[in-house]
Design a binder for these strands. Structure first.
Lengths: 121, 121
DNA sequence: CGGCATCCGTGATGATACTG
DNA sequence: CAGTATCATCACGGATGCCG
């Protein structure tokens, strides 16, 4: 008697569900994109990622670090310097994320039009 | 004097940011995945998408409808029958979403391991 | 410079009950 | 069957102040 496949995409606890729990917040994806070009310092990221607060930057970076997507390097200098860069795992996420970004760039206009038409009523 | 490109991925209001605002919630992606196979009735979706409440199902479907990603068909019968299916636009989102789901299926184990190692401390 | 601690408002989500 | 309405909760994220 066949059991349902363990990771049907629409089931609560599948990997894709968990991934979206992680990257679905306000800043994670923006941060990954900002790190695409190479290592960045904390203060650089604070300026680059428009609108993020210090608190959320710290929190999001810690979370990405815990997930193994970002590596944190502390340079024991004065003043302190801390650099963040994507790990190999983090970089491997850039491709599928890019596919999504491309879709958004191409189609969000249609989505917006549809939404505007509804709002007009 | 060159202005910054209007849609740098890490900027607050780029299309990809807005897309993630939409699909980043708890249910949207699961619902799109559940609709991949074809039209589904409300009560079917309620059973298929494990753990979703009636309220969130309604709300998420309405939102997807407003975005032009899902079409809603009411069959004037008794008892009432309502079917939901992906629009062409909605189906076009399946590919990039699939890429993300594939990444998750392949790599969420590593992410989980990394996270477990951190939690252990 | 690169954080952490605290307080707090708001929106997203869930549970429950009712309806055409 | 396919919703709507109401209430309760809780995590997300912003603001502010302090520290090594």
């Amino acid at each position: 008697m066949p059991l349902p496949p363990p990771y049907d995409p629409y089931v609560r606890d599948c990997p894709s569900r968990r991934l979206l729990d992680r990257i679905g917040d306000r800043w994670t994806v923006l941060l990954i994109a900002a790190l695409e070009g190479g290592p960045q310092r904390f203060s650089q990221l604070l300026r680059t990622v428009e609108g993020i607060s210090q608190k959320m930057l710290t929190q999001t970076l810690r979370s990405l670090e815990a997930d193994g997507l970002v590596h944190r390097t502390v340079h024991p200098e004065i003043p302190p310097r801390v650099e963040y860069e994507l790990t190999a795992l983090g970089r491997s996420l850039l491709a599928p994320l890019g596919a999504l970004i491309d879709w958004a760039t191409e189609h969000m206009g249609e989505v917006q039009s549809s939404r505007d038409a509804v709002d007009a009523r």
